[in-house]
Computed example of a mutant assay.
Amino acid sequence: MLDSEIFTWVHQLVGWLLQPVTLALLLLVAVAVWDIGVACGERLGGLRRWRALPQEQVERRARKRLERCDLIARLGPILGLMGTLIPLGPGLAALGDGDIQVLSVAMRVAFDATVLGLLGGMGGFVLGRLRRRWYDELLDGMQREQEVGDESLAV
């Protein structure tokens, strides 16, 4: 039953996915590291310059950056799990054939993919939480300044 053509095709398709998944993981971690650098720049003075912008533009920028953090936080573990499961099939098949070397390589790839996925997801999650707080504080401050300005015009 499990030797039918469709299972052979599925197995080949899944095997071809390992390299794109690994590249996507590396790209995701690189984007997370880059985004951490952007966030450091925001925290060290970039957000002060945002105060001169209209509130709608600040909200749009904040939403875009938070969406990127959320995407990193969600895709990291998904890609890590894919990168974990894909090499385990050939690794377990090699174990059945008694080839411990292939199994050890498959396990190493699987664990590396898991760690990369969790690292990227953790970076996106932490960065998203910090940014939410920073942007809320910024927008609250801008709103208070606008209310004070409106009150002084009314007097």
Rank of each mutant, 00 (worst) to 15 (best):
R63I: 03
G46S: 02
L23I: 09
P77S: 00
E67R: 14
L13S: 13
P54K: 03
E147L: 12
V148C: 05
R129S: 04
V102Q: 09
D150C: 04
P77C: 06
H11Y: 14
V33I: 09
G121E: 00
I36P: 00
A32S: 14
V14R: 07
M122F: 15
D136A: 11
I6P: 09
R43G: 08
Q55C: 06
F7E: 10
R48M: 08
L28G: 06
L23H: 14
G83K: 05
G124Q: 04
G141E: 08
V155E: 11
R65I: 03
V126F: 14
W9I: 08
R49H: 11
G98V: 01
R60Q: 08
G98T: 00
P77G: 00
R131S: 03
V102I: 02
M1R: 06
S4V: 05
V126Y: 07
T84G: 08
G121R: 05
L88S: 08
V148Q: 01
D3Q: 00
D3W: 03
G123N: 01
R61D: 01
W16Q: 07
G76I: 03
E147R: 15
R48C: 10
V102T: 08
R108S: 10
L75S: 05
L66A: 01
L85R: 05
V33K: 05
I86K: 07
D70S: 04
E67H: 13
L66G: 02
R144I: 12
I6D: 02
Q19D: 02
L118V: 01
E56F: 08
G46A: 07
T84L: 06
G91Y: 11
I86H: 01
H11E: 12
V14F: 08
A30R: 09
L71Y: 11
D150R: 15
L17A: 01
G98H: 00
R48D: 13
D99K: 02
Q19W: 14
G46Y: 10
E151H: 13
M1I: 00
G46K: 01
G80E: 03
